[in-house]
């Protein structure tokens, strides 16, 4: 069982990395990756939201199946995610105002972050209502968040170094950022050879 969980989490963090392989959640990935510190903060906010969303959407899905209204999945999940993000926002504003200020608009944008909805939906399609699916969903959600954190922190590290390097004029700003992101993505594609 433990082995299964490890496989799920390595799969979500490296092989099927949400940002760099599945291309979900690009907006905060590009938006909040100027400093490692804020990137880390954003990463943990996403981990929290994804883990909670996995757990709660699992329960919601059971209800939806019970009443045969699975077609309401998207609306119900978005509702859950929006509530969670609101909660995280309140929590950060109270406890870590510095991080709250530096995340700015990207914090409420987690609401519309496709990566979070992606986790919820992948959970359902991948694990369904099978045995232990709740725990698996939870592990998958947390790992997906960790994968996001890993990607955004790595990227922020590269971008911090780019700040002080001599970049050709026409590549400055967004172009070099996007090139860096794609190189990072190609690097992560290398993990696709891993198989268990």
């Amino acid at each position: 069982m433990l082995k299964e969980f490890i496989i799920i989490s390595i799969g979500a963090i490296l092989i099927q990395n949400f940002v760099l392989v599945q291309f979900l959640g690009i907006c905060p990935f590009l938006g909040v990756s100027k400093k490692v510190e804020t990137a880390l903060g954003m990463g943990f906010a996403v981990v929290f939201v994804m883990a909670c969303a996995s757990a709660i959407t699992w329960a919601v899905q059971q209800l939806l199946v019970l009443f045969h209204i699975e077609y309401l999945q998207t609306i119900a999940f978005i509702l859950v995610i929006a509530v969670l993000v609101q909660f995280v926002e309140m929590f950060l504003q109270k406890s870590i105002p510095a991080l709250y200020n530096s995340l700015g608009i990207y914090l409420p944008l987690i609401t519309t972050n496709c990566a979070v909805l992606g986790v919820a939906i992948v959970n359902i399609t991948k694990f369904g209502g099978a045995e232990l699916s709740f725990l698996k969903s939870l592990v998958y959600g947390t790992s997906a968040g960790l994968g996001f954190t890993l990607a955004i922190v790595l990227f922020a590290g590269v971008r911090e170094r780019l700040e002080s390097s001599d970049i050709p004029e026409f590549l400055k700003g967004m172009p070099i950022t996007l090139i860096t992101a794609s190189l990072l993505s190609i690097a992560f594609m290398g993990f696709s050879g891993l198989s268990f």
């Binding site: 009443f67 504003q93 406890s95």
Partner: peptide, 24 residues
């Protein structure tokens, strides 16, 4: 059924957020 289900969810979440807003 769907209306009650989604509406109920909204109500519960709304109430939770209201409590959280007070705490935080």
């Amino acid at each position: 059924l769907p209306v009650v289900a989604i509406g109920g969810m909204g109500l519960i979440f709304g109430a939770l957020l209201a409590v959280a807003a007070k705490i935080f």
